[in-house]
């Protein structure tokens, strides 16, 4: 599902942010990518999102070769992914329903499908009663649930989450992780970038640890390492 071969990303003349990384993630896997700030994990997510281009190596995601992908193809590729950010990145002037529906609109789903699918997903993330609320009227946890709903509404093959619990308290973080696990249980590949030690240790999933742009450990049912 995700295949990185000898991937390097340099921003300038200094040390590469991602340095000769090899990583393979199977379909349906749940993987944590951990590491300290500046370890290269966020760059890794940006490479997978095709927000950045690698400076070396090859990246294949859901059958798509990213290093040769043309700009006009990127939007179609991103529809195969769901993405969740630490700062939620919701459209502030649109309500919960519209934020989730937007992901369906961009892929040209007819309105009748959107009207059926969006309430289903909001129900799934526990926000059925708040579909009219604006993002600023919601708590951090609720906003992240909206972001999750938006990420999964199109049933993506892969869900990328960049520090999804970074702005949340421990209880809400657990709830979000439970939702991610639930999504993974339905066959979606989930890749979570985090430095939340408690969550990583509690969930007993595959843990990839990065340090200075290099993968220093990759363990099944691993634990958080202070690399």
């Amino acid at each position: 599902m995700i295949d990185l071969k000898d991937v390097t990303k340099s921003y300038g003349k200094g040390r590469p942010a991602v340095n000769h990384v090899n990583l393979h993630v199977e379909q349906g896997e749940f993987v944590f990518v951990t590491g300290l700030s500046g370890s290269g994990k966020s760059t890794l997510i940006k490479l997978l999102l095709k927000e950045l281009d690698s400076t070396g190596g090859s990246i294949t995601v859901a059958g798509e070769r990213l290093e040769t992908m043309k700009h006009r193809r990127v939007s179609k590729y991103r529809r195969k992914l769901g993405v969740v950010f630490q700062d939620f990145r919701l459209l502030k002037d649109r309500n919960v329903y519209e934020n989730v529906a937007f992901a369906q609109r961009v892929i040209g789903r007819p309105t009748r499908v959107i009207r059926k699918r969006v309430p289903e997903v909001l129900q799934e993330v526990g926000l059925a009663g708040k579909y009219k609320s604006l993002p600023d009227e919601l708590s951090g946890g609720e906003q992240q649930r909206v972001a999750l709903a938006r990420a999964i509404v199109n049933r993506p093959d892969i869900l990328l989450a960049d520090e999804p619990t970074g702005n949340l308290d421990p209880k809400t973080s657990d709830e979000i992780m439970a939702l991610l696990e639930q999504i993974n249980g339905r066959g979606t590949t989930v890749l979570v970038v985090t430095h939340n030690k408690e969550i990583v240790n509690a969930m007993k999933k595959r843990v990839v640890t990065m340090h200075d742009g290099v993968i220093v450990s990759d363990e099944e049912k691993g634990e958080y390492h202070e690399a």
Binding site: R72, S75, R89, A103, V106
Partner: peptide, 15 residues
Amino acid sequence: EEIAIMKYIGATDHF
């Protein structure tokens, strides 16, 4: 920021 969000979700440039 709004444009960036749309792009992350998979909106085409035209959209």
